[in-house]
Amino acid sequence: MAEERPAKWGLVVDLDRCTGCNACIVACALENNVPFVGEDEVAYGRALYWIRTQRYWEGEYPEVTPTFQPVMCQQCGNAPCEPVCPVYASVHSEEEQINLAVYNRCVGTRYCANNCPYFARVFNWFDYELPEPMRSYLNPDVTVRRRGVMEKCTFCVQRIVRGRQKARAEGRELRDGEVQPACVQACPAEALVFGDLSDPESRVSQLARSQRRYHLLEALGTLPRVTYLKGVGNHGG
């Protein structure tokens, strides 16, 4: 078997396609066993969205319009959350080259969330019990987190691993588009594209070279793996 080339996983968010429908949020939550916290906790800002849509209003009535920007963990190459963790729970994985959370190491200092410029990390303030028989739908590939643990988007690392194992078993390389995080798979507008950035021919690489590209808070030098393509006006693009 040929030696495997490590993949550099990346995500492109095309804001011209994104409608702000929020299907990604639900797809993510049910794939990753993200608990719902209820009305009061959402009001306190303790909802556990791994991906959220930032909606900003622009303009004045009647030219007012919302802009939508889905924000998830940017999987920084130079991640501010990593060096501050006292227990090495926020680590960079060598194989996927993404930023992962080791839940059983986490002691809940929340330093990482404090240091994340994208507000991508969320904290389990409580244990969120699921009444029977709702536990039946929990995804067995993903750990169920308990109180006091930090969590965040993992690019659905369980799907990456599953795809890689399948390709290995079949003695081939992963095909472009074979591995998709839950949000990408669900996105009805096909605004999210996921793939290997180290393969210049992959769809995600091609889109990440678009003239419309930008990164969130680029000046911080965090080297995000998520590229945004800006929405275009009436006759631009």
Partner: peptide, 8 residues
């Protein structure tokens, strides 16, 4: 989860 989902 539909209740928890923010209105767009």
């Amino acid at each position: 989860w539909l209740q928890e989902l923010p209105d767009a």
